[in-house]
């Protein structure tokens, strides 16, 4: 947990549930609130529904019931609302998902010019500043296939940041990386948290979770088993299941 003043609620999730068409229950009655500048860490065994929960927050998955409000905009059937929310919420994926036919610079410029309607010159200035921030301005002209996994993920973070998002979602951002590259990506995320970015982070990196997490939720089988301040959940988990999971993973 970092020293910072938290703001108002920016993400409000109220009782969302989701069942896949094949009958598998993905989420059951989940309610979570995130304040501005807060870092919410989501942990739990694989298959717990952590990623599904995260993907619901920007409308990549639809919920069956419950409500999601981001920065005052309800995520409903309205296409405009969904686009607005996606513009305000950045997402970083486990498998990077950079656009392979574009250079690093083009990857970061694209949405700025198409969605934010910036000129290429303005977009490029922003992109170069962000590449500087993630420590790889010299790679602007490279294609994703020429970069290491860690570099690709840092570009993906820069690409999401270029939209000036109010919330950043991280979906196991370091799980597909070789061990020696995890550090560089976590360092970028750590810096973001310190600068006061609102973040929802699904991760298996418990050291990182303990260091930067403000709130934490532990999920299993599509429900929240336990939630609370991250430090408290680590030091004295109330539920037996949480204790077992943490003892196995730490």
């Amino acid at each position: 947990m970092l020293d910072k003043a938290l703001g108002d609620y920016i993400v409000e999730v109220e009782g969302i549930s989701k069942t896949y068409p094949n009958g598998v229950v993905a989420l059951t009655d989940i309610s979570v609130k995130v304040r501005q500048r807060e870092v919410l860490v989501v942990i739990g065994p694989s298959g717990a529904g952590k990623s599904t929960f995260l993907r619901c927050l920007n409308g990549l998955e639809e919920v069956d019931s419950g409500s999601i409000v981001v920065d005052g905009i309800p995520l409903d059937d309205s296409k405009d609302h969904r686009l607005q929310i996606r513009t305000e919420v950045g997402m970083v994926f486990q498998s990077f998902n950079l656009f392979p036919h574009m250079t690093v610079l083009e990857n970061i410029n694209l949405a700025q010019t198409l969605v934010r309607k910036k000129s290429v010159k303005e977009a490029t200035e922003m992109s170069m500043a962000l590449l500087e921030k993630v420590g790889m301005p010299e790679k602007a002209g490279s294609y994703p296939s020429q970069l290491s996994g860690g570099q690709q993920q840092r570009v993906a973070i820069a690409r999401a940041l270029a939209m000036m998002p109010k919330v950043m979602l991280f979906d196991e951002a370091t799980s597909a990386l070789d061990p020696e590259m995890i550090g560089e990506v976590l360092e970028v995320m750590r810096r973001l948290a310190r600068e006061g970015m609102t973040m929802v982070v699904v991760t298996h990196e418990m050291g990182f979770a303990r260091e930067v997490g403000d709130q934490m939720i532990f999920m299993e089988n599509g429900s929240v088993v336990e939630e609370g301040p991250a430090r408290l959940l680590f030091s004295s988990p109330q539920k037996e299941r949480t204790r077992l999971f943490l003892s196995q993973i730490l």
Binding site: R55, N58, G59, L60, L83, R86, T87, V89, G90, M91, F93, S95, N97, L98, F99, P100, H101, L110, A111, L114, V115, A156, R159, A160, M163, L169
Partner: peptide, 29 residues
């Protein structure tokens, strides 16, 4: 790959822009 759609959508791109700039250029190859 599905991730290409998701990355484009998560950046706020609509369906038309996603086809035009992300999916078709890769698919044409």
């Amino acid at each position: 790959h599905r991730g290409q759609w998701e990355a484009a959508y998560s950046l706020g791109l609509g369906t038309y822009h996603t086809y035009r700039y992300i999916i078709l250029p890769q698919a044409v190859r």
